[in-house]
Design a protein around this nucleic acid. Structure first.
Length: 717
RNA sequence: GGGCGGUUAGCUCAGCUGGUUAGAGCGCGUCGUUCACACCGACGAGGUCGGAGGUUCGAGUCCUCUACCGCCCACCA
């Protein structure tokens, strides 16, 4: 893990990310533990966190409870087994017909506590309230009605087991059914059968299953059912979605355990509504990802389970008093004072007790569970802003501006952070969030270790440069998946080189020229600066709305046209006599433009711009003020001059290219027919256009747009 | 089952509140090097904007329906 951290830090430094490395923390570090435990204790004191014994989704390999947010569905092969459930003598309005139920989990027949059908289902209405006995085990269970039963599914009547899936939990709770659990925390059927099976005298049958995994038990029970004649036909293969722990390999079981929960609106409509409101107050970039938050919060079906039965993590700062019989008092946990934090209940002792009383009747016992990492990560804003140890910093930086993160952890990191900040501070932890997309492999496939298509950034940095990688990354829009594309990185590299070359040119010809705006006597120069000022406004607005990709695109577009057109147009004038007004104007405009472009590109090409900035400025560009369009925008400038001059120059280049002539080829005559105002603009830059195009005579006339170019005949070889 | 994105040139993608002949880069073709740039430049070819209706003087841009791709959510016996 430490190695991974170093690798990330090395990469991020190499990429020039402006991280304050003094603020890094680990979730089990002292600061994070103190924050986690303090927030927990305060949640506990206010009743926002509670401990409860309840059916819990459980990973049998990790042997820990898991939270709703850590679930994922996987499509799994399974089979419907048609089982015969027997009518009980003297019950049933229409005689003693057996009932056929379909189940994908026949191994849970010993855990069956009821059958349920839809209240409107005529087939089963006569049976509601009657009793039946389960196959193989002969346990009496009621037939009940519940609206969640789907008449279309299977035989229309479901076997409720404790617990086969989350619907069973709902039925168990809402129909007030008993617990008859057989699944152990190790994923194997427990050794001793439920009491009802003992009473029914079928313990020997259960013994055939005890100790087996779900899969093994299913195989065996199907054999037993077949032998007893209670399997109706052969199992019918299906595929169906099954809940998994996102990092687990076997389907989750549901077992009853005592766990810590934080209220998150999952069973409290008022809190849920408040959290939805907070989600609406948050500025999402892009806006539509907010929908994910909405559907997640609306779909919550329980509080946030934060305890884990693992070894490494932040411990709960809690002990329980033991009574004279050694029973723990879970209702009244013993807690430390805040200034004692962090504590480890496994080695620290609660106030008023001694170590000798640990695990002794009349003494105390530690809570040995640890917190889910999200219980700590949900406090990142509080950890980073010094909530427990730097009141001044906290005052100035909380709530924060921005949470940048991935889409897959909206339901965990983002949502949990909102919950914690709301409980503790009554506000959102940040005003804005940006959601990134995924990086896909060059074939637009999701990267996965199992597929072997994972590409790490460092080799790309080494091949194309950090700025090229940044350029590629900045071309990916927020929340849009972006494929690794060396072509785009090459363009970034090209752009960086172009900036170096342009800077060399500008600084080479006007070494220490003045920036005095009064020197801007050329209409073309002023026109270009107007366009540049407009660009600054547009790019600033794009950054303000977190649309960095747009900011880059606009800057880049201006830059290339600046190099191709403006620089070519003013080159002759710029090379002129340093004392001439035209030369001074060009130099001043070029330098103003260069300074602005350097700064506009700085967020993207951090290293290139830092280098060229150092050629002529003091200090780092990354702490230089952002360009100001007001100061840049010259008075009395006509934006048309630059545009029309560039258009004519392009037309001249096109003619030369079509004649397969050099760009340096002389032009005898050019006729520009244009509207009056555009011709006026062109005349304002006429000398520059003639110089740049090597044009001898430039005529203009008002009319429908046309540029007619007559080249001088080629020189004989 | 509910919802959110996407579908624009061979490829990767822009196209903001509807407005003149739909853009960029790559790739492709042609041409061009004394004077910032061959780690280059210029120019060009290439698109029924997924499909069908509709609103409008005008739709890639708005509305309805629909197809396919990706994703999220859901109590999926």
């Amino acid at each position: 893990m430490v190695e991974d951290e170093q690798k990330f830090e090395e990469l991020w430094r190499r990429l020039g990310l402006s991280v304050d490395w003094s603020l890094t923390y680990t979730t089990i570090g002292v600061r994070a533990r103190r924050v986690s435990q303090r927030a927990f204790l305060r949640n506990l004191a206010r009743g926002e966190v509670y401990k409860s014994e309840a059916p819990t989704l459980w990973d049998v390999d990790f042997r820990t409870a898991v939270a709703q947010a850590e679930l994922e569905d996987r499509e799994l092969a399974g089979a419907y087994h048609r089982l015969t459930v027997h009518a009980v003598d003297g019950q049933g309005a229409d005689g003693l017909a057996d009932i056929v139920v379909e189940t994908t989990r026949p191994e849970l027949v010993p855990a069956c506590v009821a059958l349920v059908a839809h209240p409107d289902d005529g087939r089963y209405q006569p049976r509601f309230g009657s009793w039946v006995t389960t196959p193989l085990f002969g346990v009496r269970v009621p037939v009940l009605a519940h609206h969640l039963a789907d008449p279309e599914k299977g035989s229309g009547i479901a076997m409720v087991c404790t617990f086969g899936d989350t619907t069973d939990v709902v039925w168990w709770r809402e129909l007030d059914l008993p617990v008859r659990s057989v699944m152990g925390s190790d994923g194997r059927l427990v050794a001793d059968p439920p009491g009802e099976i003992l009473e029914a005298g079928t313990a020997d049958t259960y013994a055939e299953l005890a100790g087996k995994t779900a899969k093994q038990a299913q195989k065996r029970i199907v054999e037993l059912l077949r032998e007893s004649g209670e399997l109706d036909g052969e199992p019918r293969a299906i595929t169906h979605p099954v809940k998994f722990y996102e990092r687990g390999d076997r389907p989750l079981e549901i077992i009853t355990t005592r766990q810590w929960y934080i209220r998150n609106g999952g069973r409290d409509p008022e809190l849920r509504a408040k959290l939805l409101d907070l989600g609406r107050d948050l500025e999402w970039h892009p806006a539509h990802v907010h929908q994910r938050y909405e559907s997640w919060v609306e779909g919550l079906n329980g509080d946030w389970l934060i305890s884990r039965q693992r070894y490494f993590g932040v411990p709960f700062p809690v002990w329980y008093a033991l009574d004279a019989d050694g029973r723990a008092d879970y209702e009244n946990p013993l807690v430390p004072s805040e200034d004692a934090l962090p504590v480890d209940p496994a080695s620290d002792v609660p106030a008023g007790y001694t170590e000798a009383q640990r695990d002794q009747p009349g003494g105390f016992v530690a809570d040995l569970d640890i917190m889910d990492t999200w219980a700590t990560s949900s406090l990142t804003p509080q950890i980073a802003t010094g909530w427990v140890d730097d009141a001044d910093l906290f005052e100035r930086t909380f709530p924060m501006n921005l949470r940048p993160q991935g889409p897959e952890i909206i339901r965990t990191w983002l949502f949990d952070s909102v919950v914690r900040a709301w409980f503790e501070h009554g506000v959102l932890p940040w005003s804005d969030t940006t959601i990134n997309g995924w990086v896909l492999d060059p074939d637009r496939k999701k990267m996965a270790k199992s597929v072997g298509n994972v590409i790490t950034p460092m080799p790309l940095v080494e091949e194309y440069s950090a700025d090229a990688l940044r350029y590629w990354a900045c071309n990916g829009r927020p929340a849009v998946d972006t494929a690794v594309d060396s072509g785009v990185m090459k363009i970034g590299r090209k752009l960086a080189i172009k900036i170096l070359n342009l800077s060399k040119f500008v600084l080479g010809l006007a070494g220490d020229a003045s920036d005095d705006p009064a020197l801007l006597t050329s209409a073309l120069d002023r026109s270009m600066l107007v366009a540049l000022a407009d660009l600054v406004d547009e790019v600033t607005a794009a950054f303000d709305s977190f649309d960095y990709a747009r900011a880059l695109e606009r800057t880049e577009r201006f830059f290339w046209s600046f190099c191709d057109d403006y620089v070519e147009l003013v080159k002759a004038r710029a090379y002129g006599n340093a004392g001439d007004a035209g030369t001074q104007s060009a130099a001043a405009a070029l330098r103003a433009a260069l300074s602005t472009l350097h700064r506009l590109f700085a967020p993207f090409l951090a290293f290139t711009t830092e280098e060229v900035w150092s050629w002529w400025q003091e200090g780092t560009i990354h702490r230089t003020p952002w360009p100001d369009s007001v100061g840049l925008r010259p008075g009395g400038a006509d934006p048309l001059v630059y545009e029309v001059a560039a258009t004519v120059l392009t037309a001249v280049r096109k003619e030369k290219s079509e004649q397969k002539r050099s760009l340096a080829a002389p032009v005898e005559h050019v006729l520009v027919r244009e509207s009056d105002d555009r011709l006026a603009a062109l005349r304002a830059a006429e000398d520059d256009v003639r110089d740049a195009g090597k044009i001898a005579v430039l005529d203009t006339e008002v009319g429908e747009y046309i540029v007619k170019v007559e080249l001088a005949p080629p020189e004989p070889k």
